[in-house]
Nucleic acid binder design. Structure first.
Length: 893
RNA sequence: GGGAUCUUAGCUCAGCUGGUUCAGAGCACCUGCCUUACAAGCAGGGGGUCACUGGUUCGAAUCCAGUAGGUCCCACCA
């Protein structure tokens, strides 16, 4: 008996084949003019990251695309890499140091960076190693890192170039400041808790200048009163219109501030009067810009108040302490007219949980409108195609309202901004790739000799996205001295073999959350630096959620460890499990059962293969009866292949997998193999065997992108008669034309078989008991090739065509005939009758609707001829069927 | 508040330019089976007013309008 286990054991083969692929360098691709290129750049995961379910989905899809392309004979190159992820990594390093008792503030910049590199050496590779377990066929020789020396230089070069082109400027901007960690936060690091954050809204009286009247404003931050530079009301507000143009006095310090009209103010919130504190609120800042208001920053970096608040007893105290204090003082002065609780969505720092302080500071920006124009148009014109298409709208909306991009971050880990200051004025700086260039530039600019010690480089680093937006060119070293023209600020074609060949890349597979952060910006950089798009298609995956639709997250603990899953179900099982429920662009509701389904599928295939390998071959025998099965499956395969290509072309990965799944499980295993399977103990003829092996091989090929390990294992076991050395580089089957008539005949045959099986079931007849079948039909041709297959599959002793309807039979009616199975034992007449009656009722109902349609003159006159003709045929068929059913019912009494 | 998008079987989803692949798939469920590849399996079966209300049309799951509900993105109420 078999030497193969009846259970497929992925653990035993996966590492072996991955190693084999690596050793043979199958993943590596060099430019080859003979071949069509196909390239993908990975969305680089955070260098500190650990593989999660989102990565699994994302990388499975990329691997499928790249493996298919490779088999199609393209030069397939999938470039892997990691992102230095400045904020996330720096936070991790800080935490790690803290655990060792080292404070970041005690370290110099260089010392800290050194620690960060150590960290990255130690943990940076983990996620890529994990990808290997998944089977990812990345070109590891090309592994990139956004802080690699060459990449670093590219980022700096681009900064300098954009500065020279006038796209980069320095400006004031309201940022999220973490007073505890003393750093700026990106919006993503600020958590807005909606639920139970309660605050008090105070109504405070401000005296109107030169009168005894007051204006009452509402605020939840009375400690910022001293930074007020205006009071705003809505110009449409009849209650307050008359105040516009007057002046009010800030409590305690009695500074005069104007009362202005601005649409921003809501009529029905608070008192309808808003105190404007441009230094400590984004909206107030915007209002300040519109009305040229002064900005008075009363809060220090650590959250205490400074001298500008003008009240000595508040200076140096924490903002929240001052809040309590000033409320007391305002009450004492009888200036608070109302207090009410309300629920606020205050922002807190993800890291320290302190309330984020909006703060104005000088930051670096990229002007976006002009530079993004072509990238905007490219997507609108489908030059770059988004899948699913609905994201085109989102993209459009964003690009139409694009805002300048703040690219500086108050961190150390990242590309340091190459601006060098030589004086105290805001404009006393130069931007240069290197310090020596900076010295030169500064000397020229100032007309005096500037030395290293006179220069101070900007302390900030660049936003991570300001490096990863160059990924598609930078991974091919597109900004090096040879191919980057510094004068033009462009990458010159013909100077970089890799870039000339692999760029533009073909497909980008990523998450919709970063459509703007990353995808849009890559398109912008692509056009800016190469004049070309960076990729043709963008496939946006969904978010992996649990069964309750909750996002998978560490905090919730609802995310399984992908490596554990791989251990349990095999990489192939997990890959297919992810894909079973992930229609393009929809969220994926992950359920462990899907991995189980994937594993079961592996096992099914394994056992089909086991069946074949156990057959003994008779070199001399021939079995013409098998020809039908062979011809049919060939046709069916080609039909499925056309379907498969269609799904692939539309990035319907889940449907593509399902096509292969059904082809293998239903068509191949349940029908084809059962049709050609020799009776127990008998040998199979050579011709059928060889043909079957060929089919198995073809099936393994179309399955390979989805299940690389299992298919390679089977391929390698099939033996060496095949000249193709490994399935990973074997040739993808070409779709061929197929015989529809043959497929129709088979479908009819299968229906007959199913009906007979059904009769067995409902009459408790064993599948082992042989039955006879008598067929009354006008169209014997419909069974021309399939009779022996029907006999075998339905376990019939005879199948004959008769003219007269036999008695004492179970029966059923199909499109072109009536089918009778003589019965020796007891038949369940009632069951038969209900079956037939049910069918009869259905047919009569159907007939009714068709008659109605055809009775409608307007239908007959207006509908296209074929539609009417089809309707007439339906009518005739239904009438014939009804007649047959009625007769059979009559016979049963 | 602005925008996008969705609502089809118990669940997750297909369903292209309105008409035979128009009511589908996978899973789940039910009934028989340990039949010599596979119980991680085999055979069979039952599930749906296509969210609701109108309209256009000879004909609507499909097109239009409105209603209800869901999801996402952006901006956020001092």
């Amino acid at each position: 008996m078999s030497t193969l286990s009846s259970k497929y054991e992925p653990q035993a083969v996966e590492d072996k084949w991955y190693q084999y692929w690596l050793e043979n360098n199958y993943f590596h691709a060099e430019p080859d003019p003979e071949k069509e290129p196909y390239s993908i750049v990975i969305p680089p995961p955070n260098v500190t990251g650990v593989l999660h379910m989102g990565h699994m989905l994302n990388n499975t899809i990329q691997d499928i695309l790249i493996r298919k392309a490779r088999m199609e004979g393209k030069q397939a190159c999938w470039v892997p890499g990691t992102d230095h992820a400045s904020i996330a990594t720096e936070a991790k390093v800080v935490r790690m140091l803290r655990e060792k008792g080292i404070k970041k503030s005690d370290l110099s910049r260089d010392e800290f960076i050194e620690h960060a590199w150590e960290w990255r050496e130690k943990y940076g590779g983990i996620i890529l190693e994990q990808l290997k377990k998944l089977g990812a066929s990345c070109d590891w020789e090309r592994t990139a890192f956004t802080m690699d020396e060459g990449y670093y230089k590219a980022v700096i070069r681009v900064f300098v170039d954009l500065y020279k082109k006038g796209y980069i400027y320095r400006g004031l901007r309201m940022i999220n400041w973490d007073c505890e960690a003393q750093t700026a936060l990106s919006n993503e690091e600020v958590i807005h808790k909606e639920d139970d954050e309660k605050s008090i809204l105070y109504s405070v009286k401000y005296q109107i200048k030169d009168s005894d009247d007051f204006v009452v404003i509402a605020t939840q931050r009375p400690e910022t009163i001293m930074g007020d530079t205006a009071i705003a009301v809505n110009p449409k507000d009849e209650r307050h219109q008359h105040l516009i143009g007057k002046k009010a006095l800030v409590p305690f310090i009695n500074r005069e501030i104007p009362i202005i009209g601005d649409d921003y103010v809501e009529l029905d919130f608070g008192t309808g009067c808003l105190k404007v504190t441009p230094a400590h609120d984004q909206n107030d800042y915007d209002i300040g810009q519109r009305h040229n208001l002064e900005v008075i920053d009363t809060i220090n970096l650590d959250g205490t108040l400074n001298e500008k608040c003008e009240i000595p007893e508040y200076v140096g105290k924490d903002r929240f302490a001052v809040r309590k204090q000033i409320v007391k003082d305002l009450k004492a002065a009888d200036l608070i007219v109302n207090e009410e609780e309300f629920i606020t969505k205050i922002g807190r720092s993800e890291r320290t949980n302190t309330v984020v302080e909006p703060k104005l500071s000088l930051q670096w920006f990229i002007k976006m409108i002009e530079i993004s124009r072509q990238a905007h148009q490219a997507v609108m014109d489908d030059e770059v195609v988004l899948y699913p298409a609905k994201f085109k709208n989102t993209y459009n909306h964003w690009m139409e309202n694009v805002r300048d991009w703040c690219i500086s971050r108050q961190l150390w880990w990242g590309q340091r901004i190459p601006a060098y200051y030589y004086g105290d004025n805001e404009d006393d700086f130069v931007v240069a790739e290197t310090e020596s260039e900076a010295i030169e530039l500064a000397s020229t600019k100032t007309g005096r000799s500037i030395a290293t010690k006179d220069l101070k480089q900007d302390e900030d680093v660049l936003d991570t996205w300001a490096s990863s937006w160059l990924f598609p060119q930078a991974v091919f070293d597109g900004f090096n001295d040879d191919c980057f023209d510094v004068e033009k600020g462009q990458i010159i074609p013909g100077k970089n073999k890799d870039l000339d060949y692999f760029y533009p890349t073909n497909t980008l597979v990523t998450a919709p959350e970063i459509l703007f952060f990353w995808v849009a910006r890559m398109i912008i950089a692509g056009y800016e630096y190469t004049g070309k798009k960076p990729f043709k298609d963008v496939y946006l995956t969904g978010i992996v959620r649990d069964k309750q639709r909750r996002k998978m997250s560490k905090q919730l603990g609802n995310s399984p460890d992908p490596l554990d899953l791989i251990k349990e179900y095999g990489a192939d099982g997990v890959r297919t499990g992810m894909l079973f429920s992930s229609p393009a662009g929809n969220d994926l509701l992950f359920d462990i059962k899907l991995c189980e389904q994937g594993r079961n599928f592996s096992n099914k295939i394994w056992n089909a293969f086991r069946l074949i390998t156990n057959w003994e071959i008779d070199e001399n025998a021939s079995n013409p009866d098998n020809q039908f099965a062979l011809n049919w499956f060939e046709a069916r395969f080609n039909q499925a292949l056309v379907e498969l290509e269609d799904h692939f072309s539309k990035f319907r990965m889940s449907d593509a997998l399902m096509t292969v799944y059904k082809l293998i499980w239903d068509d191949y295993c349940s029908w084809y193999l059962e049709m050609i399977k020799p009776p127990f103990g008998e040998k199979i003829d050579r011709k059928t065997f060889d043909a079957t092996i060929k089919l198995q091989e073809k099936l393994m090929k179309v399955l390979h992108p989805f299940m690389p390990f299992l298919t390679e294992e089977i391929w390698q076991q099939i033996d060496d008669r095949n000249p193709e050395e490994a399935i990973i580089i074997s040739k993808w089957p070409e779709p061929d034309s197929f015989d529809q008539i043959l497929l129709d005949e088979a479908n009819l045959a299968f229906e007959v078989v199913s009906n007979i099986r059904n009769l067995r079931n409902s009459n408790n007849l064993s599948p082992k008991e042989q039955l006879e079948l008598k067929v009354v039909t006008k169209d014997k041709g419909a069974f021309k090739n399939s009779t022996s297959a029907i006999k075998k599959m339905a376990n019939l002793s005879t199948l004959e065509f008769v003219d007269k309807k036999p008695d004492n039979c179970m029966s059923f009616v199909l499109q072109s005939g009536e089918f009778f199975v003589p019965i020796t034992g007891e038949i369940d007449v009632e069951a038969q009758k209900t079956e037939l009656q049910k069918e009869l009722d259905y047919q009569r109902g159907f007939l009714n609707t068709v008659q109605k349609k055809l009775g409608n003159e307007r239908f007959v006159n207006n509908a296209p001829e074929q539609v009417v003709a089809a309707e007439r045929k339906k009518l005739a068929d239904a009438e014939a069927k009804i007649k047959a059913l009625e007769e059979q019912l009559k016979k049963l009494g």
